[in-house]
Design a protein around this nucleic acid. Structure first.
Lengths: 244, 244
DNA sequence: CGGCCTGTTGAAACTGTTCAATTTGTGTGG
DNA sequence: CCACACAAATTGAACAGTTTCAACAGGCCG
């Protein structure tokens, strides 16, 4: 992937977070980003270790996970192309969670110190990056509501709606269908359910005529009812953030 | 409460987030903070409205909530003295959640625009405030793990441990006991449980000899076993953040 | 071809919910 | 100071959603 493709992608991403001055933006992109490829199911960040670089996903998917002592896993976030991986640990002495690749991944990396220095020098960049971390926090809050208070069917429907909205925003989804890059076990780990139950609920949604499935392709067959079942309101994604 | 008390409290808070330059700090405190009192169970922030001021809790407790369409509530965060209320919405055009007082509250407020301007002017302040929002995000991740993957007993035990650690850090808790400023219904809403079940689990923890209770006073009677039952590791609170 | 991961299905078991009633505590007004 | 009202806490019993355990099918990779 040529250098300019990365620049474009990063620029497009930040533009959804704040109105960034072109000069600031080019300073950010002039940083010593290095491209790196990661195989599937590979640790990118490990809990307990100090963050040293910040990754930007160019292609592929990843997730943040936390584990209980007895080995149960909770996927607390899913990262898609255009997401910055280590911003959540930007100012921490050690990471509080792992990041693992969900698919093979192409990313660009920059030393985290350089990013800190740039944020200190350019308030416009800081505001855009900060906003990005705030939006991720907003998604955490919605997930807490989703897991804490919605029954499995609504919970899964909500996840499907969110995925579509986020993939759509980065041109990775059609109007009605998209590819869900997760196994049912991973879906369960993201929603506090067992893989068995995810399977059953998926089939219920299908039987209800809300979605169709083919492998991991999801085709929404009734948007109105899916959104209603999910109690989905995309406000929390703050997609309109930098539009004014 | 005299002006200096507020300054001290804000200074102490930020010192736990980053090493802040004294000059920067005094600029922050020189902002036009106004003191305000809020009665119990009163909305401080409402979902959908644009954030206009940023509050700092001097005394009392509050919580962030999100509601499902059918009125179920999830408490996604509890705020304690020293917490900044509106930082999570700092760069948003509208809030994605409500904030409600848990007890009568004394807070100091500043126009959010002034805070944005100061963050743009003073990178040291920005870093400290940003770190504060990142720590709150880290707590969200732990809560997701807690609600998604731990059974009710561990879940409640974890909440009790977190409360103690956070209150202890602001000198609101003894070594073994503290006051939990929430009803059992609110506790349930914070953990995705019903109030009935919270009651039963609380009694289990008591019967197991892990805690004692008197009204909302919690007395930990066996720290080792409570932490084990909770699978509690305070890393995610990043209490050591600004120590280096 | 064989092995393994993922998905699928059924039956039984269990954790947590729901509904409903009762108790306790606290503040208010008489 | 007592009676009353109301919120919060407590308890029991029936119920439901989700998990657990187990088995099997399908597809992909070495």
């Amino acid at each position: 992937m040529p250098k300019s493709a990365f620049s474009d992608q990063l620029a497009r991403k930040l533009a959804t977070r704040a109105l960034v001055d072109p000069g600031d933006l080019s300073a950010l992109m002039a940083l010593s980003w290095k491209q790196r490829s990661i195989p599937i199911a590979h640790y990118i960040v490990r809990e307990g270790l100090p963050p040293q670089r910040c990754g930007f996903i160019m292609e592929g998917y990843a997730y943040r996970q936390k584990l209980t002592l007895d080995g149960q896993r909770e996927i607390v976030a899913v990262l898609v192309p255009g997401d910055l991986i280590d911003l959540q640990n930007l100012y921490f002495t050690q990471s509080d969670h792992d990041v693992v690749s969900l698919t093979p991944l192409t990313m660009a990396e920059v030393p985290i110190v350089e990013l800190r220095e740039l944020a200190a020098a350019l308030p416009g960049i800081a505001a855009a990056l900060w906003t990005d971390t705030l939006i991720e926090a907003s998604i955490y809050r919605e997930w807490l509501l989703n897991i804490g208070r919605r029954p499995a069917k609504a919970r899964l429907a909500h996840m499907l709606c969110e995925f579509h909205a986020r993939l759509r925003a980065i041109d990775r989804a059609g109007e009605m269908e998209y590819e869900l890059p997760m196994t049912q076990e991973q879906l369960g780990d993201a929603m506090g359910l067992t893989p068995v139950h995810v399977n059953r609920v998926l089939k219920m949604l299908e039987a209800d005529g809300l979605i169709g499935r083919n492998k991991r392709q999801i085709k929404v067959t009734d948007w109105a009812r899916l959104r209603t079942a999910a109690d989905f309101n995309e406000r929390y994604l703050h997609l309109d953030q930098a539009v004014p």
